[in-house]
Design a protein around this nucleic acid. Structure first.
Lengths: 182, 182
DNA sequence: TTAGAATGACCGGTTGGTCGGTCATTCATG
DNA sequence: CATGAATGACCGACCAACCGGTCATTCTAA
């Protein structure tokens, strides 16, 4: 992750990965059959960790409004805490958009997004049910919310001084809650 | 643009670019001193075209609410019309996030974002002034709106069947306007 | 005739992946 | 317990493909 984050997929050299892992280059190929394979494995690993982190942070919260608030809060925490993680994601996005060469990666991205959308949509739908939210199409709203978070990491990583992550986090939460208010 | 969009920066070969342009490989180097230089020139060209397109589509509109509505509408139109364009943007994002190697590109991305944020913020600020919007920090709101648009292209290009671009456009416009309503 | 635009064969650096071999550990046997 | 065989994790020198960039040559248009 460190090497891929720092250099990007294409510039990253297996030799350097091995070096930083304190093993020989040949050893890498004992565990991963190719550079792509290693990259894919990293994707799965990171996604699993991210998901686990979210689950832990949201467990115990039942109130839809509080859940959504906490979800956005956690998102901004992860931006800061897992910066290299998101740097690597740039490459998945770049490759995943190119369907032809990267069917495997694209499928994984697709599924990850679908799951995330449904998770967020479930929170919104619960809120609609108990009257704390108003929303005609929770799935579309969820897509927009996730998009905003993705887009903000993008902007922030391109220009860390452009805005204060705390301020934008507070502001965004407010905007989203207001747009879902009955 | 076609080749970079299809293959991504690293896989794109100058020879193929030349071929599709109907010229010899050497000729490319008569006009651009390196692959990076060509890529950067493409970035500037695309950004200028995009900006010109927006200006044209927004000219004549004075009412802030109508301007913002039209802005979002135009964004979704460009997603469809300039798909390859956004595919290339993936690479700018991926490279721009990696500060060290790509200072030049990062600076350009930064400036492009700053300009776009200010443009959108100006619309919102105008709306706040004439009472059609309520917003404490137009710049932060603008950042979020742009982020949502970026994030949605990302999701859409990774999975074109995941959602209907028209539906999400309408939905998003509604959500944004509601979140800015006084 | 000639300036300079266009060309593509070629070069050289880079790097993903291979493979023959080493060595520490474990196991089988007497 | 001692010995040597078997194992497999580990290694890095090496190979071959690939591609950005060059340049000697050809073409073209004024």
């Amino acid at each position: 992750m460190r090497v891929f984050a720092r250099e990007g997929y294409h510039r990253a050299k297996i030799e350097v990965v091995a070096e930083e892992a304190g093993i020989g280059k040949g050893t890498v190929y004992e565990y991963f059959k190719s550079k792509t394979d290693l990259f894919l494995a990293l994707h799965d690993h990171m996604l699993a960790e991210l998901k686990a982190f979210y689950m832990k942070e949201l467990e115990g919260i039942r109130e839809p409004v509080a859940m959504l608030e906490r979800f956005i809060e956690v998102a901004f925490e992860t931006f800061r805490l897992w910066e290299p993680f998101f740097l690597v994601f740039f490459d998945y996005w770049a490759e995943g958009g190119r369907g032809e060469q990267q069917k495997l990666l694209q499928t994984r991205l697709r599924e990850a997004y679908a799951v995330a959308r449904e998770d967020v949509a479930a929170i919104i739908a619960a809120g609609v049910k108990d009257g704390s939210f108003r929303c005609e199409n929770p799935l579309l709203a969820a897509a927009s919310i996730l998009a905003t978070l993705d887009g903000l990491v993008l902007q922030w990583l391109c220009d860390r001084d452009a805005f204060d992550l705390d301020a934008i986090g507070k502001n965004l939460t407010e905007m989203i809650l207001r747009s879902l208010r009955p």
